[in-house]
Design a protein around this nucleic acid. Structure first.
Length: 280
DNA sequence: CATATGTCCTGAGAGC
DNA sequence: TGCTCTCAGGACATAT
């Protein structure tokens, strides 16, 4: 489930490879069907040979490694992908390894248990046209006016709209629930019905939740999958207010009991008391 | 054009 | 105990 905070933690965690030159690329075939790798393996390896990592970045929920020839490695972890500079949780689900010329440089791994993620090598033009152009403003950079302008005409529920990466980039199922709870907005509330004070609270809650989650290095859920680049668990799961807490008392109002509902085939958690369905 | 649904994948946990 | 079923949710293809 890596969302913005987890992917940002990955990006920061691999900053040490900036300036390193690629010596060798290892594609781990194993018994798995091919990972979402493009271009085809031989070309992928050839185009990376001798390249230097110029910078790291993030586009929504993707980690970007910018190379010295302006190509970019685009890592999309989806549900269970991890970018690591240390030994992975297991060797069975390793997909890709990159070794560097400098002896002291750590090896860069891509590990993915479920294999829904992908690793692509794109030109800067492809990165712009295929990736960046399909994303809305980053959730950490969006202004309150942009947020309202982009979402308020949607006929969908606010939580469903927050998950639409073309409207705002970086928020996933877990953080959407946490953000709406902090903002005291019901997830089923249609975007068109939000009033000014709610847009204000929503914008504030997006920043507050995401910054705190980054500070905690993301959320490691009960399955234990998510890890930072050094294979350490995140800490934000200890701050979750509603996610996976159905039946517990609401931490905001101390009166409501957290409910689990389903929207767009995704589990949603909210407090029926302080996240009222009608506008404020 | 906007929105809705089906699909991929593995492993954990429930229920019998 | 061992089997089957359900669920978890990223992004995208296809349908409405």
């Amino acid at each position: 489930m890596p969302e913005l905070p987890e992917v940002e933690t990955m990006r920061r965690g691999i900053a040490r490879v900036i300036g390193e030159t690629i010596a060798e690329v290892q594609l781990v075939a194993s018994n798995f069907r091919p990972i979402g790798l493009s271009p085809r393996p031989s070309l992928f390896v050839r185009r990376l040979a001798g390249r230097t990592i110029r910078d790291t970045g993030r586009l929504g929920k993707r980690v970007i490694l910018h190379l010295d020839n302006d190509d970019a490695i685009v890592v999309e972890p989806r549900m269970t992908g991890l970018v690591l500079l240390t030994d992975p949780p297991d060797y069975e689900h390793l997909r890709l390894g990159i070794g560097f010329r400098r002896k002291a440089a750590p090896r860069l791994w891509y590990w993915d248990r479920r294999g829904l993620g992908s690793v692509r090598l794109l030109t800067s033009k492809e990165l712009e046209q295929k990736v960046a152009a399909s994303l809305g403003p980053d959730a950490l950079a969006i202004t309150q006016a942009e947020l309202r302008d982009r979402l308020q005409r949607s006929r969908r529920a606010i939580k469903v709209a927050l998950l639409d990466q073309a409207l705002i980039a970086g928020i996933g199922n877990l953080y959407a629930a946490e953000i709406l709870h902090l903002a005291r907005i019901h997830p089923a509330n249609p975007c068109s019905q939000l009033i000014n004070s709610q847009w204000h609270r929503l914008h504030g809650a997006i920043g507050e939740v995401l910054h705190k989650a980054i500070q905690c290095e993301g959320s490691t859920l009960s399955d234990g999958t998510y890890r930072n680049a050094l294979n350490k668990q995140g800490g934000y799961q200890n701050h979750h207010r509603v996610y996976a807490r159905a039946g517990e008392q609401c931490p905001t109002c101390q009166r409501g009991t957290i409910e689990r509902t389903v929207q767009a085939q995704r589990a949603t958690f909210s407090c029926p008391v302080c996240q009222r369905k009608r506008k404020k």
